[in-house]
Design a protein around this nucleic acid. Structure first.
Length: 202
DNA sequence: GCGACGATCATCT
DNA sequence: GATGATCGTCGCG
């Protein structure tokens, strides 16, 4: 039933920026505790391992938290930000590299009622998955899901054939980076132009 | 619709 | 002991 799953080869490519862009328009699914939710990826950010000061793996940094980033692509990297929010990243590249894509916003498709219950804050569906912390919550994901295979049956991605025209994919500076580096301005954030589910314009 | 602000704690130094 | 790849609330007008 899930033969449209993105293959391992999609994640093993070395160009995390290209992968970040390619992920726009793909559909992400979680099946956790018997609950299925899915949504279209509308906003991502690329984090390019050792040379990227914005990355947890900058300068080859490797700790208990980010260890999974060095694994072969096709697994999740989950971590907690500001002590409260769980973040979902897609690990990419061959084993030994440390690139990852942060998923920043989703357009809900399946399991809206489940998402509403998990969020229990907004009745406004546009905000269910608006922002990395929000979407992880809505999809039922937290730090305990670190390192899950994206080819398993708990979380996976599919290409449902949604075509996002190249000119509708906007590239801009990444959000929330408190760094002093040219990488702060480099346009490694991608989102769908005009999409109401994107966390922020600009 | 937007800016300011406080929450809150795992992680790293 | 300081710091976040953030979020929701409040006040504005």
């Amino acid at each position: 039933m899930n033969e449209q799953k993105l293959p391992l080869s999609f994640y093993l490519r070395d160009d995390v920026v290209q992968i970040s862009r390619d992920l726009i328009g793909k559909q992400i699914f979680t099946y956790l505790d018997g609950l299925l939710t899915s949504a279209i990826i509308v906003e991502t950010e690329a984090y390019r391992g050792p040379e990227d000061k914005g990355s947890h793996a900058f300068n080859g940094r490797r700790t208990a938290r980010n260890d999974i980033m060095y694994y072969a692509g096709g697994v999740t990297y989950m971590y907690i930000c500001y002590g409260i929010h769980d973040m979902l990243n897609i690990v990419t590249g061959p084993e030994g590299t440390s690139h990852a894509v942060l998923i920043r916003a989703l357009q809900p498709v399946d399991g809206l009622d489940i998402m509403r219950e998990r969020r229990a804050v907004y009745s406004d569906d546009k905000r269910l998955c608006k922002g990395p912390g929000a979407l992880a919550r809505a999809m039922g994901l937290n730090k305990t899901h670190n390192g899950l295979s994206l080819l398993g049956d708990q979380i996976w991605l599919e290409d449902r054939g949604l075509e996002v025209p190249e000119e509708d994919i906007v590239a801009s500076a990444r959000i929330g980076l408190n760094i002093d580096s040219p990488y702060k301005e480099i346009p490694w954030r991608f989102y769908i132009r005009g999409n109401r589910y994107v966390s922020k314009w600009g």
